[in-house]
Amino acid sequence: MRYLTLLPLFFGLASVAIFLGCVELLLTFGLLNQFVIPFPSAVLGSFGRLFAEEQLFHRLVLTGTEALAASVLVSLFGISIGVLLHRCRVLQLATEPWIAAITAAPIVLAYPLFLVMFGRSAVTIVAMGFFAGLAPVILKTLEGLNGVRKSFINVGHSYKLTPAQLFWKIELPAAVPTIFVGVRLGLVFALINLIGVEFLINFGGLGQLVNDLAERYDLPGVFATIVFVILVSVVIFSALERMERWFRPADRS
């Protein structure tokens, strides 16, 4: 059992190591241009410098705080708006196509507008993350609430539940797994846009660092930061997946 979970992990890590080794060799023999691609060893080596001189940890906390703020806002507003639209059918029919369209729109391009409204500040960054992540949460909340099995609702009616009881005891818990999928999507969208805007307006945490280092042409540093961002995302989203399983006792078997 344990062997079976460790084996894929081992192969995954081994293939990454082999790939990096190959890149290192190709660079050494001049088959790859080292002015475009830094040595993997140099990238690894620059982590110490990033933590010591570029306050990588501090920046992580900064971006993390922004992400947390955006996530809380996205969940709070997304779920509430979803519930509201579910209650009000006319409103839902009127807005759902728009919201779906917004999900596909590159909201990050609207950053100058936010810059004008909120200045070059954390508020702009959080606001961008918020707007980018909102649509999927609304849509998935709607999907979850609309998809509650008729027989569950009928059970509720047969016990003469009040509308509030019906919502809190049946509709919402039945929709939670779907809503959480939306929250996870929303957080992905928010995080991507957060770091993107940090990069674009050269302000804040990790995104700004990539911008900074790129301008100084510190290639190993840029790559190391990008690797770091990817690792952090992986950790966050596997944690979210864990939480999702926790919200879905139905599939725990």
Partner: peptide, 28 residues
């Protein structure tokens, strides 16, 4: 509307997947 004296067992699956057996049974 639903009459309080009536209890119903439905043909379709109607146990709540987010509740344990005891919480399902204790629901009413």
């Amino acid at each position: 509307g639903p009459h309080p004296a009536i209890g119903m067992v439905f043909q379709e699956e109607s146990t709540f997947p987010w509740r344990t057996v005891i919480d399902n049974v204790a629901f009413p």
